[in-house]
Simulated scan of single mutants.
Amino acid sequence: MECPCYGKAGCRKKSLLSPSSPARSPTSASASAILFRPLSRYGLWAALIISLTYFVIGTALVPRLWADPLGPMLKIWPVLMLNLVAMAIREDR
């Protein structure tokens, strides 16, 4: 439900479903699909594609992220590996 003054100067209220809301992000959709067993295969593939897209676009547009002390680009590799492990053991769970 939108705030009637949403977007006006001085309004501090935000909609729960604003465009920047995490509830609308593709990562939350893939995470929800992973939790629901019949859709877990599609959710894992979506998570893999989203991570690889983040890696490629991040490297192309902002290569200095590789030198960042917090390592935002380095954090992708463990996520990708865990995603591949989850894909491999999906049938056994």
Rank of each mutant, 00 (worst) to 15 (best):
K8T: 07
I49S: 08
L16T: 05
I34M: 13
L61D: 03
R41M: 03
A60W: 15
A9W: 02
P26H: 05
M81D: 00
A46E: 11
C3N: 09
P26E: 06
S25G: 05
K8A: 09
V85P: 00
K13G: 08
S21D: 01
L82R: 08
P26Q: 03
G58P: 05
R90D: 12
S20Q: 04
F36V: 00
C5V: 06
L74Y: 01
R64D: 05
S40H: 09
V62L: 00
P4L: 01
S25N: 02
G58I: 05
L61M: 07
S40I: 08
G7H: 13
T53P: 05
L74F: 05
V62P: 00
P22S: 10
L16P: 12
R93P: 00
R37N: 11
A31F: 12
A33T: 00
D92Y: 08
R24D: 01
Y42I: 08
E2A: 03
P69K: 03
K13F: 11
P22K: 00
L65P: 01
M73I: 12
V56H: 08
C5Y: 15
P63E: 05
R64L: 06
M87T: 00
L82G: 14
L74W: 02
V79M: 04
S40K: 04
W45D: 06
G10K: 06
I50W: 08
L70A: 09
V56N: 06
Y6E: 12
K75N: 14
S15F: 01
E91P: 02
I76H: 04
L48F: 12
A46L: 11
A47S: 14
P72G: 04
I49M: 08
Y6S: 15
T59H: 15
Y6D: 11
K8P: 01
L39C: 10
C11G: 08
A60L: 15
L39F: 07
S20V: 07
V85E: 12
I50V: 07
A86K: 09
P78T: 12
V79N: 09
L35M: 07
L16N: 05
I89A: 01
Y54V: 06
P19W: 07
G10Y: 05
S32H: 04
S18A: 14
D68F: 09
S21Q: 01
C3E: 02
R93C: 07
R64K: 14
Y54P: 00
L44C: 09
C3A: 14
T59K: 11
L70S: 06
L61T: 13
S25K: 02
W77G: 01
I50N: 15
L70E: 02
I57D: 03
A60F: 14
L52V: 14
L74G: 10
R37G: 01
M87Q: 07
M1P: 04
R93M: 14
L44D: 12
C3G: 07
G71R: 15
